[in-house]
């Protein structure tokens, strides 16, 4: 904790709303927090309190429609992510900000091996060739086998 001042992430008054036929649902209504370099922040709350929506908002992955980031700002390394283009966001996703989803049964594509899917993000952003990174790490889990075979075993390890 040397560089206390170096804020890597600062969320100010973030509002993510869902506009449905039954009315507007304010899933995230004005959350603010900040995170310094090297710090770990845990957000705790009951289900439906907006933890996932907050995290998805950081990556700008809110399904739209019906969801929309209605207000606030997300400063990442001093730049507002809400003003970035989709292309700029792509180079941040899985590279500078990553998200590990719950439920590997549905969060991983059933037609590809799990290891390959994990390696995909690394390959993409570090411009590595196939099977260089990641996959080797995971071979001890037996992940190069098809997902459907090893899923049960991997599930606990990956989540």
């Amino acid at each position: 904790m040397k560089k206390v001042d170096e804020k890597i992430l600062e969320v100010k008054n973030l509002q993510t709303h869902f506009f449905t036929d039954e009315g507007t649902s304010k899933a995230v209504n004005g959350i603010s927090f900040s995170l310094n370099k090297g710090e770990t922040l845990g957000i705790v709350g009951e289900s439906g309190s907006g933890k996932s929506i907050t995290s998805l908002s950081l990556l700008r992955l809110i399904p739209s429609p019906p969801g929309k980031i209605a207000g606030g700002s997300i400063l990442f390394k001093g730049e507002d992510l809400l003003t970035k283009t989709e292309k700029q966001m792509r180079s941040i996703r899985g590279n500078e900000i990553s998200m590990i989803f719950q439920e590997p049964m549905t969060s991983l594509n059933p037609v590809y091996p799990a290891g390959e899917q994990i390696a995909e993000a690394i390959r993409l952003h570090q411009k590595l060739g196939k099977r260089k990174h990641g996959i080797k790490r995971l071979t001890c889990f037996g992940s190069s086998a098809s997902l459907h075979q090893k899923r049960g075993q991997n599930r606990s390890r990956m989540s």
């Binding site: 998805l56 990556l59 992955l61 966001m89 792509r90 180079s91 941040i92 996703r93 899985g94 590279n95 990553s98 998200m99 989803f101 969060s107 991983l108 594509n109 899917q117 995909e120 993000a121 993409l124 952003h125």
Partner: peptide, 8 residues
């Protein structure tokens, strides 16, 4: 969504 989160 996972694929999107990877930045593909």
């Amino acid at each position: 969504r996972t694929a999107r989160a990877k930045g593909l």
